[in-house]
Structure formats: C-alpha cells, structure tokens
Nucleic acid binder design. Structure first.
Lengths: 192, 192
DNA sequence: CGTCTATTTGAATGTACTCAAAAGCGGTGG
DNA sequence: CCACCGCTTTTGAGTACATTCAAATAGACG
C-alpha cells in the first residue's frame, strides 16, 4: 500500500480518513509472468496500480498482429478505461511481462471513493491529464518520426524499460516489425 | 454559454450556483479563419471550449512538416494541457480553420471553479477520460492500419469533418503526405 | 479576372514489410 | 553438465507501401 499512498500524495496528499477508506478497498493481487488480467471480449472490472513488476496492454489487428498500446511499471495505472466506464467488452489484452504485484480497485470501491472524497476526483483528474499529455506526445512522435528516430526516442525516454523488454515488445509498441527493428539496431550500431 | 452548460450537464449537471460561477468567469472570444490562439514557444493560458467553428492543434517536426494532433469542433475543448499545467512553452500551435466562437477559461478562473466546486473536478476528469480513450484508439489505428485503412476509418468516424477540412489537413492528421493521400483516394474511387 | 491554395499525376527513391531460414540464448530436465 | 526446447534476434532477397520533387490542373476567394 505504501507505494500507492505515496503515489496519491504526489498530487493532493490524502488525509487519514482517505487513506483508511482506500486501504480497506484496495485488493492486493500477485500475478505471474504471462498471466492475463484482462482478455479481449471481457469487461474491465478493475483499476490496477502496479506496485512492482511490468505489464503491457495490447490489441490485435485484423491480420493477427499484436500492437502494444501501453507498458505499465511501478507506480503506474493500467486498465481499459473505455471498457471499465461503459461496461463494454474490451478490445484489449493486459498481460504481465514480469511477475507483478498489483493494487486493484473495483468499480464499487472506486465509485465509493469518488463520491465520498472529492480529492480522488481531483487526483485521478490530474493523473489522467498526465497520461493524456504523454499520449499526445506519443501520437506526434508516431506520425512524425522514422522507425530509427522513434526507437532512439523510446530508449531515451524509457531507458529503464530497455533492459526489461525484449525488442519484439518495443517493436510492437513503435508499430514496426521485429525484423525491421533488428535492422534499425544494426544500422545504429554501425554508426559508432 | 448555452452550449457550454449543456456540455457540462451531460456529465454531472451544474446547479445554479455553479452555472453562475462559471458564467462570470468564461470569456467569449471570436476568432477568424487562420487566426492563432496559441503559438509554439508561448505558454498556453486558457482552456478553450469551441462553441462554433473548427480549430486544429499541430506541431512541426525538425524538417518543418506540420502534423495535426487534434481537431476541435463544436462542444470540444482544445488547449495544450502540458503547457497550461506546468507553465512551460508550448510545442504546439492552435489555429482556427474556420471562423470560430470560443468560451475561454484562464488559469485563475479554472482553479477557482475547481477549488470551490468539486463537480468541476469530476466533470473535467470524465471529459479527460473520454479524450484519453479516443487517443488510445487513435494510437492503435495509427500503428496498425495502412494509409488507406486509416483514411477510411477517419471518414467513418468523423464524416462531418470530411466536408469541412481540406485533404491536406486530413493527411497531416493521419501522418501521410498529401500527395500520397491523393493517390489513396484515387485507388479507393477506382474500386467502386 | 488574377492569385493563392489544394489536388492530382508521374517518375525515381527510400523506407518498411514479408517470408524463410539461420543463429543465439536462456531455462529445464535427464 | 549436456541436450533440447522455446523464444528472440539476425540476415537476406524480394516486394509493397509511402515519400520526394517537379509540374500540371483544378478550385476558391477577393
């Protein structure tokens, strides 16, 4: 729980009441490598806060290719918001890349917190805003950069992920094939 | 103002007090075609709600090419959130494509509303969530679809924009060159 | 009518993909 | 400790998708 409280305290710090209300509703969940916490077609029922480990959210296109939409490491939230909010089947999968520990809030718990403590509205608003800002930057990079530029940018922005992810996963995040990423990497190393 | 109030009422409806507090803080602004409400390097000082008209937010890459990040039409918000929140120079431009009428909130006004009426935290949280969901879908489409598929999807999702935007602007949103979009369109029309 | 911008066309080029196969790299069990 | 398995990474040849540049055409607006 400490992780999670520290996380909220970065924004508007929680008071004792709020910490308690949060604490009795959060469920700790341990998951293994390759375990799924959301499957396409299912409704997303939880907000998941990553206390430790690494997960990915991905979708599969009509040709069966996987595309990573998001990685979530320590102190990040992961869920399918659209599915969660509207109780609709998810188009995404969420899978653990490393064994992970999550703190989960289900819908009732989240609604309770939001309705009784406006601070959670505030904090989740700001958390969402930050995610939104990141996504807009990603869009810009995606449509404006070449594969090589995008890969370099990824390494710069997420150096800690480089050691924890196979290149296949990075390629899938960038929207290029693993074969081509391999060639890009070769090119980069030849330039030294 | 009616537009804006109706917009908020879609979420948690505003009461009289809130409507009044909002009303005395919102500034109506009329802008012409080609007018900029934000320039790269400036700090974004307003949330802008589009009452009528059409604007675009774009960035310019290192080669001088423009890439559209967002279009905003009636009843949508447009701003550079990162710049607004952190008082940092914007990397984006926001320009009117059509003559438009905006309702703007500056930072003090927004903070006042957020601090005195938790409902605005709630409403802006939900608004942000919906924008976030759209962006995640856009990312997926962007990395998974070909130019032709992406263009068709755009027409399907935003049929009303098709008549209001030059193809150049759509190409810039999709991340392809206008010349290639022209060829894509030719291909599509040949298939009929 | 003239000007400015958007759109189309074509040829040459470059970027990224497909498919197939080989090589590398852990982990696991015998 | 070695052999094997599954997965990742690399390589290469051929192909498809998208860009560049230049120029012609078409539309919109004052």
């Amino acid at each position: 729980m400490d992780n999670l409280i520290t996380h909220f305290n970065q924004y508007l710090p929680l008071n004792e009441l709020e910490v308690e209300a949060l604490g009795i509703r959060v469920i700790e969940k341990t998951i293994k490598r390759r375990q799924f916490i959301l499957n396409k077609g299912d409704t997303c029922r939880h907000y998941s806060f990553v206390s430790s480990g690494l997960l990915r959210k991905y979708a599969i296109d009509k040709n069966g290719c996987e595309f990573n939409i998001q990685f979530a490491t320590e102190n990040q939230w992961i869920q399918d918001l659209g599915s969660f909010n509207n109780n609709t089947p998810s188009q995404f999968y969420i899978e653990a890349i490393e064994p992970s520990i999550l703190f989960q809030l289900d819908k009732n718990s989240l609604l309770y917190l939001l309705q009784n403590f406006p601070k959670f509205d505030r904090n989740f608003r700001v958390i969402m805003e930050n995610k939104f800002i990141n996504l807009e930057n990603r869009i810009f990079q995606n449509i404006s950069l070449s594969a090589e530029e995008g890969y370099k940018k990824f390494l710069n922005e997420y150096p800690e992920l480089y050691n924890r992810l196979p290149n296949t996963q990075i390629a899938s995040y960038l929207g290029i094939t693993p074969e081509f990423l391999s060639k890009v990497r070769r090119n980069i190393s030849l330039k030294d």
